[in-house]
Design a binder for these strands. Structure first.
Lengths: 226, 226
DNA sequence: TGATCTATTGGAACATCGTTCCAACCGTGT
DNA sequence: ACACGGTTGGAACGATGTTCCAATAGATCA
């Protein structure tokens, strides 16, 4: 028999899917740094060598985990007739995914050639096309949207890296922003007037609204150039 | 005597500035991964313990190196009367700095609370203000520009991570983009029509022009909302 | 059925890294 | 001359990603 159709050896047999699932659980509950092959092996009750039979290396594992999360976003059929609304919904889906899994942000911005980014590129690009942007400008417009999203993804991941795990994130976030704002408020007024002004609105600002505002700004730019 | 004014012990005495300088040399010539405390100690003909007396940890070292590069950009007096041109020049300065030192891109996007980012925020924000953007919208507009720049910074750093060191970067870059384009061209046409279309323009596109286009798109959005 | 074969497993071992620790050093002040 | 403290150099520690390999278990075949 040339092709081998393998039935599962045991119900708890190792597989890439099961490994990725366990990795995501660790990443979500204990943070980026907690994902080690030893911790993963312990959770799966196996050795690190067994994991390496299913996964090429840690990059491969993180890319698969990221793709798993992002696929859940891009798979949703997006409602809304106007392309602007579809783009906004897609982008917000990515934003919410990063909010729920901050490590995804770091992974997306660190490795732009992975499948997850390709998925986003396709979905957003097709809507840019539908928006009527001239073909020559579609490339720049789409990658501008992507760069903005990936840039914010990286910042979000950096923020999550500061917070301790297993705590009330929103409360800690507020305290953290207030600390930053306090530091900014003490900067030299002649050298940093704008940042000092930002400090007054920083602690109360809404991430999500800030994100949508950025998307809308780029969308508005696309319309005005058209 | 309460204050101690120390003359240098030797002309080759260790100092944070000298350490940062050596770190930048390693980062530029051998890439991000090559910067280890052992390599740094070897280049400075000392031990890692001595370095730790001047530098808190590797994050501190990388932040100082990044700040050194970015300070060189934001210190330049920017010419041009129109705020749009000033913003474009500033952004291009950062772009060129990242082009010359790809590791700066990774560092900027990974750690948005460091001094270098603060510098950029101040310079760009003040120009957004000069542009006449209403005060309530200044925060979102400025951070949108920053997110875009940081997003592209991360992608640029990721690209540099792929290339081997000590080679003709532009030639390798071309070959790499052609490889990516070839892979994209073989995707399922029904599932990835847009990315397949992008593949045709990917190898010849100009990074710098793409970057300016993104900046201009956001600037256009700011003007149209105004 | 029993022997064999191969995909898969579990964990020891290795190289490398960031970081800590500490004994020695050297210029300065008493 | 002596002691002191800022500074140095390198050994040592703990952790990580990865490799290596002997042992296993289920499928296949005689």
């Amino acid at each position: 028999m040339a092709t081998k159709i393998r039935t599962e050896r045991r119900t708890d047999a190792l597989s890439k899917a099961r490994i990725v699932e366990a990795a995501i659980e660790i990443l979500d509950s204990e943070g980026e740094d907690a994902l080690t092959f030893r911790a993963l092996a312990a959770r799966l009750s196996t050795g690190s060598g067994a994991i390496y039979w299913h996964v090429a290396d840690k990059n491969d594992l993180l890319a698969a985990a990221t793709d798993h999360v992002i696929a859940g976003v891009t798979a949703d059929a997006v409602r809304g007739l106007r392309p602007q609304e579809v783009i906004r919904t897609l982008a917000l889906g990515v934003f919410d995914a990063i909010h729920a899994h901050p490590w995804v942000g770091g992974q997306l911005s660190r490795n732009p050639w992975q499948d997850a980014v390709l998925r986003m590129l396709e979905r957003i690009g097709s809507q840019v096309q539908a928006l009527g942007v001239p073909e020559r400008a579609q490339f720049n417009a789409t990658t501008a949207l992507m760069s903005f999203i990936l840039g914010l993804a990286g910042q979000y991941a950096a923020g999550a890296r500061v917070f301790p795990r297993h705590t009330d994130r929103s409360a800690f976030r507020k305290a953290f922003l207030e600390t930053v704002a306090a530091k900014w408020a003490q900067l030299d007024p002649t050298e940093h007037p704008f940042v000092r002004q930002l400090a007054t609105v920083l602690p109360e600002h809404d991430d999500r609204e800030q994100f949508v505002a950025g998307i809308d700004l780029i969308l508005a730019g696309m319309e005005s150039v058209q």
